[in-house]
Amino acid sequence: MIVGNHLVKRYPGGFEAIQDLSFEINGGEMVFISGHSGAGKTTLLKLLGAIERPTSGSLLVNGQNLMALRRHALPYLRRNLGLVFQDQKLLFDRSALENVLLPLEIIGLPPKEAQRRACAALDKVGLLAREKARPIALSGGEQQRLAIARAVVNRPTLLLADEPTANLDPDSARQVMGLFVAFNQVGVTVAIVTHAPQEMPPHPVRRLLLNHGRLAA
């Protein structure tokens, strides 16, 4: 599913956020990427989500070498990834349903089918009753669940999340983590960046511990 070989990510100015990192994440696995602040967790997630390109090394995601991927091919790769961000990146001028519909509009699904799938995704995260609500009217936990609904509506094979429970109360964090476990149980590969490994659920997960851009464990 994901194979990284001698990955390096160097930013302008010379700072190396990822240094000679090699790892594998198998299909159907649930992986926690953790480490201290500045360890390179978010950078690694950005590389996996093709948001940034590695400086050197090789990175295969869903069988595609991101180093060789052309710019115009990126959108098609991203459609097979579900991305969940710490700040959710929701559109506040649209309803919950319209936020979830956006990825389906992008792939050009017929409106009826898109509506059906968006409602199903909202139902999975327990927000169907709030489909018309704007994100501003939702709690932090609900916003994060809405972001998860948008990430999974395209039925991705890989779900990537950056600190999805960082700003949530314990109950909401448990709910959100429960959703990731549920998606992993139906075969979706899940990679979650977290700075709080104690949040790891009682579910078979693997932990990638980063230390100054290198794999520590």
Partner: peptide, 16 residues
Amino acid sequence: ADEIEVARLIGATDAF
């Protein structure tokens, strides 16, 4: 700008 950024992240092409 926000909408464009989100759309890009979830797979929108430049044409879209």
